[in-house]
Amino acid sequence: MSTVAPFVRVLDAPPVLARLYPRAVTSRPDPSADPTRTALEQRGVRVDADRLAAYDRVCGFPLRDDLPPTFPHILGFGAQMALMVTEPFPFRLVGLVHVRQRIEQSRPLRLGEELTVRASAAPVRSHRSGAVVDLVAEVGTGDGEPVWRGVSTYLARGASAPAGAVADDAVDLPMPDAGQPALWRVPADTGRRYAGVSGDVNPIHLSTASARLLGFKRAIAHGMWTAARSLATLDARLPQALTVDVQFAKPLLLGSTVQHVAARDGDGWRTAVRGRGGIPHVVTRVLPG
């Protein structure tokens, strides 16, 4: 699955998402573009305690010297966005749906480590509802030790993959076998708070008004917030080296009350956030190693 783009562009500064989103609306997709051509790299990235603490607060992790396994995603997200907006990209960003996320880490990253963040894309695959593309974020130490890798799978509904593209064969994650679910009241300002720590200022998360412009009834939670909040409940039980698969199902409307379930599954865990009638919003599977 890993790819290596022939061209690596080194970013001087972290991409500013507030500037990328407006461009995302106006930029024209180039259906013939090969997203795997370029990778973006940012060096000398350091996480300080303030930023980590703010993230931990919003997502429910205790403040430790380790970065939670979901944290590095926010380090790579800007570069992923920039890859989709500033480089030739086959799909329109508006309307791309984050359907799955995979996280692999060989150990937790640590506060104060000098990090290199790299974003690249995998070849487009065909999908029963359109086409999917994987945006890959890799975070390693400045020394060159790769530690964390995140694969964000985006679905472009109705789009078509190039001829000969491989088909996306992912299957739905099963729900955990769980007893009593926990109740979460998801505050209406969650999207703004997570945007504050992650920089992901996509209007669909910020307010009812801005979400309506894009066709949602109310603002919806960031998928990665929901996933992080869910994994935070496992906390000390999360393995050091792990693989997490996350499936984003139905959007979670902010201000609603949802159920959270978590259950052991062999050496690992399964968790899910579900709404009325048990309809899943987010399902995860955590495996050690």
Binding site: S2, T3, V4, Q105, S106, P146, V147
Partner: peptide, 15 residues
């Protein structure tokens, strides 16, 4: 599979 210290050259020749 966890991410491990892999190297980019190895990844590249895998494509």
């Amino acid at each position: 599979m966890p991410t491990q210290p892999t190297d980019r050259y190895a990844q590249f020749v895998g494509t």
